[in-house]
């Protein structure tokens, strides 16, 4: 009788170890292979955050979102994360999209003032009404991939 119980304990322990090991080493979300939770225009997602930041956080943050928008500029100042900026509200609101460094060549090849379609993980809206130097707002997407 002792043998089956010992075997059961070993199997349960092994299962728990494997579960823990897999959880500890689970990969980050692979945006390219993840279906977007929603497809939305740059102006619409900006408006959602501008109207109600808290509700938009609950609805969009941590989710892979597909966004269409007008490319205003490429921002290549941070070599760790090349970025592009899409028009949000036409004056002081933007969608800031960060890419892995391996996307640099594709980003350089983009043309300003063209419409871009991409996917990325929504992180929220940056900028603050309380900080006068940072009153402009960016809805931020990370780990973006271009949809061609």
């Amino acid at each position: 009788m002792k043998k089956p119980i010992s075997l059961l304990i070993i199997l349960i322990s092994l299962g728990a170890f494997l579960y823990g090991y897999r959880a500890y080493n689970k990969p980050h979300t692979d945006v390219a292979s993840t279906e977007a939770a929603e497809t939305i225009s740059a102006s619409a997602i900006f408006q959602a955050f501008e109207l109600d930041d808290s509700s938009a956080m609950v609805k969009y943050s941590d989710k892979v979102i597909s966004v269409n928008g007008l490319l205003i500029r490429r921002d290549l100042n941070n070599k760790n994360e090349p970025q592009i900026v899409l028009e949000g509200n036409g004056y002081d609101g933007f969608i800031r999209c960060g890419f892995k460094p391996e996307y640099l060549d594709k980003i350089i090849a983009l043309q300003d003032s063209t419409y871009i379609h991409l996917k990325g993980i929504c992180m929220g809206m940056n900028g603050s009404d309380e900080l006068d130097l940072l009153a402009d707002k960016d809805v931020v997407l990370s780990n973006c991939t271009l949809i061609e």
């Binding site: 941590d62 941070n78 940056n126 006068d132 940072l134 931020v140």
Partner: peptide, 26 residues
């Protein structure tokens, strides 16, 4: 690391501000 920190300073008054999204720390 967070590589999308919004920050500015005023070169005359010295005022310095930054804003970082917590979810954007990788």
């Amino acid at each position: 690391d967070n590589h999308k920190v919004k920050t500015a300073f005023d070169g005359t008054s010295g005022k310095l501000q930054f804003s970082a999204l917590i979810k954007d720390f990788e």
